[in-house]
Amino acid sequence: NITAAIYDEIQQEMKRAKVSQALFAKVAANKSQGWLCELLRWKENPSPENRTLWENLCTIRRFLNLPQHERDVIY
């Protein structure tokens, strides 16, 4: 289940792992930094009809659900 909290989790994970938006986007969703920036802007007004947005957030959720040491190896 995806909630608005995922946006904060993304920010916290980037700080914790000391990774850039570009690197996080690449490893978590195989996307660009610009894409992640755009995604983070949706926090203010996520559209329930935007299926692509929710699919991408689900992809990021799966990455964030990995154990921390696995995420660190991927970075």
Rank of each mutant, 00 (worst) to 15 (best):
N1L: 03
A4K: 08
A4V: 14
A5M: 12
A5Y: 15
A5P: 13
I6F: 03
I6D: 02
D8E: 13
D8F: 08
D8W: 12
E9N: 10
E9F: 07
E9G: 10
I10F: 02
I10P: 00
I10R: 00
I10Y: 00
Q11I: 11
Q12G: 10
E13K: 00
R16G: 08
R16I: 10
A17L: 10
A17S: 12
A17V: 13
A17Y: 15
A17D: 07
V19R: 05
V19I: 13
S20A: 07
Q21A: 07
A22M: 10
F24C: 05
F24G: 00
F24T: 01
K26G: 05
K26Y: 08
V27A: 11
V27N: 15
V27I: 08
V27C: 06
A28P: 00
A29L: 04
A29M: 06
A29Y: 10
A29I: 08
K31F: 07
S32G: 08
S32A: 08
G34L: 12
G34A: 08
W35G: 14
W35S: 10
E38M: 07
L39N: 05
R41F: 13
W42G: 14
W42L: 09
K43V: 06
E44V: 07
E44Y: 12
N45P: 09
N45E: 12
P46Y: 15
S47R: 15
S47M: 05
S47Y: 06
P48F: 03
N50G: 14
N50R: 12
R51W: 07
T52Y: 13
T52S: 13
L53R: 11
L53S: 12
E55R: 08
N56T: 09
N56F: 04
N56S: 04
L57C: 04
C58F: 10
C58K: 10
I60P: 00
R61H: 14
R61V: 14
R61M: 10
R62W: 03
R62N: 02
F63K: 02
F63M: 02
L64S: 01
N65K: 13
N65A: 08
N65F: 03
P67S: 06
Q68G: 11
H69M: 03
H69P: 04
H69N: 02
E70M: 05
E70S: 03
R71I: 02
R71F: 00
D72K: 08
V73L: 13
I74W: 08
I74M: 03
I74H: 02
I74F: 01
I74V: 09
Y75L: 08
